[in-house]
Design a protein around this nucleic acid. Sequence first.
DNA 1: GCCAACGTTGGC
DNA 2: GCCAACGTTGGC
Length: 156
Amino acid sequence: MRYWLMKSEPQECSIEDLERRPDQTVPWFGVRNYQARNFMRDRIRVGDPVFFYHSGGTEPGIAGIARVASEAYPDATQFDPSSPYFDPRARPETPRWLNVDVRFVRRTRFVPLAELRSAPELADMQVLARGNRLSITPVEPAQWRFIVQELMGLKQ
DNA sequence: GCCAACGTTGGC
DNA sequence: GCCAACGTTGGC
C-alpha cells in the first residue's frame, strides 16, 4: 500500500463536494501530465489512502482524507469536445489519459501549506519540493503518520 | 495580478 | 536531438 497527495481546485471539486457526491466518490479526471498519469497507471492501487489537497486561488493545504476506489481507466473528458480537458489526439482505441476514482473518508482540520513547510519532519515531502507542479505525489509512510497524528491530531 | 518553475511543442 | 518559445501551474 502506498500513500498519496492529490491536488484539487476547490472551485472544481472541494472535499465538501466529494462528501456530497453520490457514493461519496468522484473520478479524478483532468490529469494531463504524464508523470501523474503513470502514477495512476503503475503504482496507485485500490484502497491507497490519499490526502485531499486544496490548491489554486484558495488557501493551499490539506483539507481531508480520501481513498482510491478504482483502478485506472480511460478519462472520459479527453474524448469530449465540449470539455476543457478535451484532447484531439486521443482516440477511444488508444486513450492517452487515465483517471482513478477517489472516495471520501473524512474531513480533517485544515493543514495549511505553510504549516507543512515549517515541519522539519516533512522536509523531504515531494509536494514541498521547489517548483513542484505535480498534481499527484507520493507520501512516505512516516510523513503520513506525522501529518495524521501530530498535525491533524487523529489516532489512526 | 505577478511571476518562478516546469512541461510540451515544433522548427531546425 | 537540441532548444527557444509558449502555455500552465500554483504560491504569493
